[in-house]
Design a protein around this nucleic acid. Sequence first.
DNA 1: GATTGTTCTTTAAGGCAATAATATACAATC
DNA 2: GATTGTATATTATTGCCTTAAAGAACAATC
Lengths: 303, 303
Amino acid sequence: MTASDSSRQPASRRGGSERAEHLAGLIMALARREGMKAGDRLIEQRLADALDLSRAPIRLGLKALETAGLARGEPHRGFVLAKNPTSGAAQPALAAVRRREQVYATIAGDVLASRLPADVTEAELMRRYGLSRAELQRLLDRIAAEGWVARLPGYGWRFAETVSSPEAHAKAMAFRAVIEPAAIAQPGFALSQDVIARLRERQQRVFEGELEKMTIGEVFHSGCEFHEEIIRGAGNPFFLESLRRVNSIRRLFAYRSFADRDGMRRHVREHLRLLEVLETRRYAEAAELMAKHLQRPLVAGLS
Amino acid sequence: MTASDSSRQPASRRGGSERAEHLAGLIMALARREGMKAGDRLIEQRLADALDLSRAPIRLGLKALETAGLARGEPHRGFVLAKNPTSGAAQPALAAVRRREQVYATIAGDVLASRLPADVTEAELMRRYGLSRAELQRLLDRIAAEGWVARLPGYGWRFAETVSSPEAHAKAMAFRAVIEPAAIAQPGFALSQDVIARLRERQQRVFEGELEKMTIGEVFHSGCEFHEEIIRGAGNPFFLESLRRVNSIRRLFAYRSFADRDGMRRHVREHLRLLEVLETRRYAEAAELMAKHLQRPLVAGLS
DNA sequence: GATTGTTCTTTAAGGCAATAATATACAATC
DNA sequence: GATTGTATATTATTGCCTTAAAGAACAATC
């Protein structure tokens, strides 16, 4: 009924190489994470290592970036960032990525609004969203990895009730309120000064202006990264892993939440405060602070 | 180098329908969980509902059970359990299931012992374990769902360091020691008398003798079920989900642990004690008890 | 009236060949 | 000496087709 008919095309040949633009997006995202500026060199091997790829696909991504005007390249000198990755101009390349995400978002929306039955066959999804079997499988694998759909033993898949339930958000927060402070309170917890500095720099930048220019999705993403980086300090992958999963589900309803810029501002300030305490290794205190940070009901979802 | 060559066959036609025997195994496992006895009827639709399947595959499973001598069927009267599902005789049908699990176990062992590089291509795995692409994909999907392998952005997969690390077990326990007591202490925690009764009955049975007859794997499985049923009481799927994931990884190294029957006995006694406290709704006390239960170093892994 | 038996429809898995994407090795350039 | 350019080998995806598996509907039986 609500299915998007999503350009019935052979999945390749669609506006100048979908894959390349996707790669371009990955590169820009990395550049942003690393705090790179316009003019910085984009060294192939370094990008390849950071993204767990070989140079071949990186190269495609770089070419796409050049086409999009986000990078400039000269023969035998490689590529250089043409714009600050945080600037609004980073959108063009991302536009392609967005298109790729469209079906995902549509499905997420349909599941959240219960427009889709809990149990569905692949055939039905293919028809409904105009996907090839291969495309659908990729998508379902990804969603399964995020934990909100699972294969049934026979034919078909089942969406987790978790997602569509109205209390889902509260439950996710309750879970975080348990694991995040506990992680900080773990015996071996430690956060290198490097990491702290990087996190602070990023939060500071957001605090001092970028916030206004960011989309809800970006703010959300940035918050997740912050918290995931901190929980990583426990040195226990189970904490990190479980936070990641919660976050990937929270992301689904984050889009619905209102943009309360003031609340977000206060939120980021708390992040900065937390970093101060972590820096001086007062972990017990930091754990408490984190607990408070998470318990605050807050609008409808960020952190 | 250590690859098992695993009967290079077309994946179907292998000793009287592999799939049917697998289904038979599912049915027996269900019968055990539900505490069924020899003589109980196996009603197709009921089994189908419980296993999220239709009657067609159930029927195959039942026929296989009959062949294996675990069920008896008469025309128009359906099937009846021939043996107690807890008896050792339940093994024959499971033998087929085990065969199916063999490659999985081999891979798990190779990863645990670091005989496999962290990054591998599918082609390499296919060669090494003598699998078709389809078989391998199924396997990798399952392992990915369990969380100890993940697709790389390019070609290949990466096994989680989590698994092979020597501290993995301690980390898993540390994580459990956080979430399980916290789950019990959640505001809405509740466990119906029904559930408590069922759990008690099961633990009691194990305590009073079955323990001696169970394999390590079965003891482990039973322990997981117990804990998962309890954490479910928090009514927060994130707790349950994360415990499940930890457990599916713990299972990997559980096989290596020694069978300390005395330790296990004490362990089950603690489960029974915990149920008593839960029954009277003294949740704070129960949470503490659970924390102690999990903190005890214990041999090498059960609970 | 519930359950099993049977038939028919739909769904997905498996294998194969063609093609695209990625990795790798080495030469060329700065 | 590090990085880019290029050629080659390896790896995995895609689409197509065949076949197996599962679901659904209805009749038959207890």
